[in-house]
Design a binder for these strands. Structure first.
Lengths: 342, 342
DNA sequence: CTGTTAGCGCCTTCAC
DNA sequence: GTGAAGGCGCTAACAG
């Protein structure tokens, strides 16, 4: 069998005795090619090990059918369902997903933004909470309609793009209401980085509601760390070994709540009898751990799917998208919250 | 300022009064262009908001400078350091990383393999433990030198490509030796899916050594589940509530070991006084948890970097790569192992 | 140092 | 239903 090293559409055409147009059609629009011709071409292509060169196709089409999702830490299990939601939606439209982990590193951020701006991807979903600098500049110079579509999962300072967001402020008030209603007065908040608007809002929502109820969150009851079990474990230990420790803790993620629970257990403190804990995210494990976690439910998968949906709408047509979509949140009361000890 | 909607190299050339070649060089090989010409071109390009069209560049170059990493579950924290290792190595050569999560789903697997085969990526690193079907076929038909380079992180049935692997069999023997040496005789193994060669090897290495020492692992002491905390938690509870429960548990990952520890704690069993636990992976948290985890250390970051290195060697030149590279492993004894209770 | 000239592989009118 | 021809945006010889 005479093999060509890397057959192109032209090789197939020549050997099959047809034009390149016919070969192209045989693959892209099979019904526009007569049955005998089609099978002959397809068979030959298969025999020669021909494969469409997608680099050429993408170039010709002027798009890549890829979208980038920018996150700050791919290892954060929070994202796993979020990715799934995006991926399912993207795949349905023939798009594939590129996951960009910035790891808080400006260079990698730039790399991925560069891929968008230079046409290696058709759109971008941002869920880092930050506006990449390299993106802010082009958006400031040109109207967004001249640039590839971007959707953010939070309001971003300095970047006016459609958002699909959750109401961090209001959902945190739910946590405060719940704890206040149980009788807690001395409460702590374990926060994600407050330079990220979302976390700042969670703190503000919680603190504002406490204040409205005539209370206050002392400064030394507000601590900040990374969104990991380990980070929260350390913070909680510090928090609880102070004089006059809190009777309740509001953590900015379930991962952090898990760390808090771990620390409390090590300190010999019982949850919820001695200390209450409220998490955030409603991770899959929240309902199965012991004690089951009281937390703020986020529709993570739907969130991803919706963000992707909005992006694809822009990719396809011009610009007919809602500017802001709010995802519903909900307080799920389980077993880590109870009235404070007398 | 007269704006072109989407300026190309040709627009810049025309307006700047130079040839397209010069514009191209000004970007790709700045030192080959005279200073005044270069700045004039670059300035103009900037002013016009020109951006290189990477689709065209990739097409022209015949490559995309992207490599795909295939994993079975992106949410498994095991991968996080592994990705980092790959990414650092890749970035150093100007390559970017596409993470493909198969989620055990054959369709997504096919998607990513398709991207490789159609030239949307230049190479593939497999760390799922399985050989994707859609990859086996082309490799069976053509010599691998005609196909894009692939590196696997385990020996794969039905796919003869270079591997960068760990010795699952031998490292599991280390765990067995340690436990045996402490005096354990009744031991259980919490396994990952045994249809994945790596996990089957871990079980075999452990069991064979026990057998050589005149012991045996009863069938009901071998359990299998997903690589998650929760899965191992359930398995451990079952294991320990049988008559004659084991005095030691060898888990196929640290995540699983964490689940086991959690279950033991809930059952009121003390580690290591009453039950010993050995993990696998040496995750970052292994040394900080209480009690600190005895485990098999894997150089995860280096593993990723080495796999990437081997891949890039193939991408660049023809085929001068070692067929198999073994990463070193090591037993790290910490606090979860001790002699069994008398 | 710079310009001219050919395409890379595919798709897509426009004829036939 | 099929073929001929042009071009997507860029780069890489090869001259000058």
């Amino acid at each position: 069998m005479s093999k060509v090293k890397n057959p192109t559409i032209r090789d197939i055409a020549r050997i099959a005795g047809v034009s390149t147009a016919t070969v192209s059609r045989a693959f892209a629009k099979p019904d526009q090619v007569a049955e005998p011709t089609r099978t002959r071409v397809l068979d030959l292509a298969d025999r020669l090990g021909y494969r469409l060169n997608m680099r050429a196709v993408d170039f010709r089409h002027g798009r890549t059918y890829a979208i980038i999702v920018l996150v700050s830490d791919i290892a954060n299990p929070f994202y796993s369902e979020f990715f799934k939601g995006i991926e399912e939606r993207a795949r349905a439209d023939g798009y594939i997903l590129l996951i960009g982990d910035t790891a808080g590193d400006a260079t990698s951020e730039e790399t991925y933004v560069g891929m968008l701006l230079t046409g290696r991807a058709d759109g971008l979903i941002i869920n880092t909470g930050f506006c990449p600098e390299s993106l802010a500049e082009p958006f400031a110079r040109s109207p967004s309609s001249m640039l590839p579509p971007v959707v953010s999962c939070a309001d971003l300072d300095g970047l006016d793009v459609p958002t699909v967001r959750i109401d961090n402020y209001r959902s945190s008030q739910l946590a405060a209401e719940h704890l206040l209603g149980l009788g807690h007065r001395r409460m702590a908040v374990i926060c994600g980085s407050l330079s990220i608007r979302g976390f700042a809002d969670r703190l503000a929502g919680f603190a504002d509601l406490v204040r409205q109820a005539g209370g206050v969150i002392p400064d030394d009851m507000i601590v900040t760390g990374r969104m990991t079990i380990e980070s929260a474990r350390a913070l909680t230990t510090t928090l609880m070994t102070r004089d006059d420790p809190p009777t309740a803790i509001f953590a900015h993620s379930d991962e952090m709540a898990m760390g808090a629970l771990h620390a409390l257990r090590n300190l010999g403190l019982r949850v919820p009898e001695q200390v209450s804990v409220v998490g955030y995210d409603d991770m899959n494990y929240a309902k199965v751990v012991t004690p089951a976690l009281t937390t703020i439910h986020l529709p993570r998968r739907l969130w991803g799917a919706t963000a992707c949906q909005q992006l694809l709408l822009q990719v396809g047509s011009g610009d007919r998208v809602q500017r802001n979509i709010d995802m519903p949140t909900e307080l799920i009361v389980r077993q880590t919250t109870a009235p404070p000890p007398r």
